[in-house]
Simulated scan of single mutants.
Amino acid sequence: MSAAPLRITPELLRRAYAAGVFPMGDSTRREEVLWFDPPARGILPLESFHIPARLAKTLKQGGYEVRLDHDFRAVMEACARPDTWITGPIIEAYVALHREGGAHSLEIWREGRLTGGLYGVSLGAAFFGESMFSRETDASKIALVHLVARLRAGGFHLLDTQFVTDHLARFGAAEIPRAEYQRRLAAALRRKGEFRQFAADSDPSAVLHSATQTS
């Protein structure tokens, strides 16, 4: 981990992620950015993604709209709760990367309101999930299912979650050693994922079929 006052450009972000390093803002020194390369890395295996039965039922019921990159900044700001690592410099850096097509948001809307979503970085056939939020029950989980369906349809090989939380563990997330992560990252970067390949965002049954088997 190290601190840096320099401006974070899209190119710097791409180089960092390609090297297995990611930034986080300092909640106490708001203009500083910390860089991390942890000894164990959280990933969510795309081939064994698990959807809990209750969530599968919610997906089938529908009543929501999934939007891609509709309001990237709003998703980041919703994720940036007080005293979080998503500081002003972090938001501006990822918004700039988003404008260049390197960062994406997957958003859940209901009756014209943004109710949940997530954002992350796309590089090669790797997607680096950064943060998610919910304003309604299961909204971020619905976004995660749609993300996995999109990544699988687009030929992605790695979904990096950085760390493993109890929330992510329910979907099959696990930690792997740094060396194994670097091996998987290198393999994913040699390929090209198509983030916009999946076009069935409004069809929950298609999402379930594309993402995984439920249990």
Score class of each variant (00 low, 15 high):
T87C: 05
I51Q: 09
A78I: 00
F49H: 10
T87P: 05
A96K: 11
T87D: 02
D138A: 07
T58H: 12
K60C: 12
G129I: 02
A74H: 04
G88E: 15
T137Y: 03
Y64R: 05
A125V: 07
K57C: 09
E100A: 14
A56K: 09
M76S: 06
M76I: 15
F49Y: 14
G62C: 10
R54W: 04
I51Y: 12
A78D: 09
G102A: 11
A103K: 04
V66N: 03
L123S: 11
Q61D: 12
E92T: 14
T137R: 13
E111D: 15
D71E: 15
G62A: 06
F133I: 06
R73H: 06
G120H: 11
A125Y: 05
L118T: 07
R73Y: 01
G116H: 01
H98L: 05
F128L: 05
Y119G: 03
M132G: 08
R113W: 03
H98C: 04
V121K: 08
A126R: 00
V95N: 04
F128D: 12
H104Q: 09
R73L: 10
Y94D: 04
K60W: 01
A53P: 00
R73V: 08
A53G: 05
I108L: 14
A80D: 14
R135L: 15
I91H: 07
G120D: 12
A53D: 12
H98M: 11
I90L: 14
R110Y: 03
G129H: 03
W85M: 13
D69L: 07
F133V: 04
T58P: 00
F128E: 07
A53W: 03
R135D: 11
A126C: 07
G120F: 06
H98F: 11
H70W: 12
D83R: 15
S105I: 08
E136Y: 01
R113Q: 14
I91W: 07
H70N: 07
F72E: 05
G88Q: 12
I108N: 03
T58M: 08
G101T: 10
A126G: 02
L123N: 01
L59F: 07
A125C: 11
G117M: 01
E100G: 12
P82L: 07
A103I: 07
E111K: 14
R135I: 02
G63R: 09
E77V: 10
V66C: 01
H98Y: 11
A80H: 10
H104I: 08
G101P: 08
G62P: 07
R54F: 04
H70T: 00
M76H: 08
L68E: 03
S134L: 01
P52Q: 03
R135M: 10
E107Q: 10
E65A: 13
A103S: 13
L118N: 05
T84K: 09
L114E: 06
F72S: 08
A126W: 03
R54V: 14
F49L: 12
H50F: 14
V66E: 00
A80S: 15
D83W: 09
E107T: 08
F72Y: 14
A96C: 05
R54H: 15
T87H: 04
P52F: 13
A103W: 00
A74F: 00
L55H: 06
R81N: 06
I90Q: 08
H104V: 06
Y64D: 00
E107C: 06
G63Q: 12
G117V: 00
G112P: 11
D69F: 02
R135G: 09
R54I: 05
W85K: 12
